[in-house]
Simulated assay, not measured.
Amino acid sequence: MSAPDDWIISSLLEDLAALALASDRVSVADLIETLGARGFGPLLVMLSAFLILPVGMLPGLPGVVAVFMILIGGRMITGKTTLWLPGRLRRVHLSGHVLAVSVARAQPAALWLRPLLAPRLVTFVESGLATRLIALILMATGVLIFLLGFIPGLPFVLSLHVLMLGLAMSTRDGLVAFLAYCMLLPEIVFIWRVFT
């Protein structure tokens, strides 16, 4: 029997797969509990992946993800390290089958990313200034997705820098955080062109 993979992203996917297979319906509260004490990074990876993978096609999910981003950003900017959720949001459910399919599709990408991610340039992800910047980016992204999530493709585009920031926070990789900051400019140009 092989030992479980202890890399944070792989272990996250394994736990989500186990949760998805255990029930036909998975609540947001179950997802947060499964993530445990891993911090906001893995949660951001999961949320952004939801908008990229098949589960993101579920009606209303972009709005739920947007609220999460706003809440996480708000907690980060006040120095909190755990996520508070209103009861109504904790009771939102996802299909266990769709979650399992999404996790299965994410696993090859996680294996591909593993050798590329490492702790480096941690100032870009862990300094006080970086934390506040990431918090503001998350809140702004959440507001945009919440207000404009009905535009086809927009939640996907806006989830890309959030995925990068989540990976950076999970692995203390400041280079990935810096690349996420750089991604904001083409995303802003994309949004500008949509509305002009």
Rank of each mutant, 00 (worst) to 15 (best):
L147H: 11
A130Q: 09
D15C: 02
G60N: 07
I134A: 05
R120S: 13
G142P: 04
T82E: 11
S11C: 13
L121C: 11
A177R: 03
R90Q: 15
A17T: 06
M57V: 09
L31K: 05
L94P: 03
T78A: 10
R88F: 15
G153L: 00
F68C: 05
T78W: 10
T81Q: 14
I9V: 14
R75G: 12
R91C: 09
A135C: 07
I52Y: 07
G39H: 00
G56E: 09
R172S: 13
L121R: 11
V65M: 09
D173C: 07
S95V: 01
E187W: 09
V101E: 14
H93K: 15
R114T: 03
E33T: 02
G174K: 03
L160N: 09
T171Y: 04
A18T: 12
P186S: 13
L113P: 00
L111E: 15
A22S: 15
P155V: 01
R90K: 15
L117M: 14
P42A: 13
V45A: 04
S48M: 11
K80T: 00
T171I: 05
A66H: 00
T82C: 05
V143D: 07
C182Q: 14
P42L: 10
I145K: 07
P119C: 06
L51C: 05
A22T: 07
A37T: 13
L147T: 06
L136Y: 06
G41R: 00
I8Y: 05
H93E: 14
I188S: 03
T141A: 13
L158W: 10
T196S: 01
V64L: 11
G79M: 05
M57S: 15
R105W: 14
L116F: 13
L144Y: 15
I70K: 00
L21M: 12
L160Y: 04
S10C: 08
S127G: 01
G142A: 09
M169Y: 04
S23Y: 04
Q107W: 13
G79D: 05
L158M: 13
A140W: 06
V55S: 07
A18C: 12
I52R: 13
V176M: 11
I151N: 06
A104Q: 06
A49S: 15
P86C: 12
